[in-house]
């Protein structure tokens, strides 16, 4: 399994100012599978997720140490190209955050950033747009109103759009930070279905508060507590026969 790992972290430690949020994370994330990150609020699961595309660094009081290897490259090496990294590692956020521009421009936003002007053409853009929207089952609904503002769509459609805009970049990893927490149960079910559908093509890491969701969606699960990984295993195993007492307590709802 180790040679298949899409992400390998070794002793990753992270501080917000004086506060240490990650205390030595060793984790191998399997390629092409869905890995759920679960744990109570403040356990560091979102922080860890936000290390994988280095978006944590927006805040200059964040300090990260350790090695974090994605597809064989240490992404914290000094010569790493952040733009290239974020092309390979896409992110879906807690609240759907389509940009306040048209649906078309939203889906093609990343594509245009990463395609030099000379290589762009209307035809290629149309193709990328159609294929991305088809992958998230929005093409039939939206194809006649691609010029509408994306921020006016329903939340479920917004979140699907946020997934769609990653696809033209052909990322190898998609990070999802509680992607359904702003959605109602119906929309949640549909987005979960979509996540299962696109899995396989991508390595997906999904942070969730919702244990039922982790169980439904993920192949593997990582349970975190106060900045450390307590247990990592196949989802069935972790939920049916947790090895650690703290995992058992958490999934049975004794704390959290």
């Amino acid at each position: 399994m180790a040679n298949q790992a899409s992400i390998e972290t070794r002793d990753v430690r992270l501080w917000y100012g004086e506060f240490q949020a990650l205390k030595g994370i060793d984790l191998d994330v399997s390629r092409g599978r869905i890995t759920g990150l679960i744990g109570p609020s403040g356990c560091g699961k979102t922080t860890l997720l936000r290390c994988f595309n280095r978006i944590n660094e927006r805040y200059d009081y964040v300090r990260t140490e350790g090695s974090l290897i994605i597809d064989g490259h240490n992404i914290y090496a000094p010569d790493v190209d952040l733009i290239e990294l974020r092309k390979r590692v896409g992110m879906v956020f807690q609240r759907p955050n389509p940009l306040p521009i048209s649906i078309r421009d939203n889906v093609l936003y990343g594509y245009r950033l990463h395609t030099p002007k000379a290589e762009r053409s209307r035809g290629a853009e149309d193709e990328a747009l159609e294929s991305a929207l088809k992958s998230v089952q929005l093409w039939d609904i939206l194809k006649d109103r691609l010029g509408d503002r994306a921020t006016r769509l329903q939340l479920e459609q917004q979140q699907k759009l946020c997934i769609a805009r990653l696809l033209p970049l052909k990322p190898s990893i998609i990070l999802m930070d509680e992607p359904c927490s702003a959605l109602d149960p119906d929309a949640t079910a549909k987005v979960e279905e979509l996540i299962r559908q696109i899995a396989g093509e991508f390595t997906i890491l999904i942070v969730t508060h919702n244990m039922a969701q982790a169980r439904r969606v993920s192949d593997e699960c990582v349970f975190m507590l106060i900045g450390e990984i307590v247990e990592h295993g196949r989802t069935e195993d972790l939920f049916i026969a947790p090895k650690d007492q703290r995992t058992a307590d958490y999934i049975e709802g004794r704390f959290g």
Partner: peptide
């Protein structure tokens, strides 16, 4: 964040 995470 959306824009930066897409590599802008």
């Amino acid at each position: 964040e959306a824009s930066l995470a897409l590599g802008a």
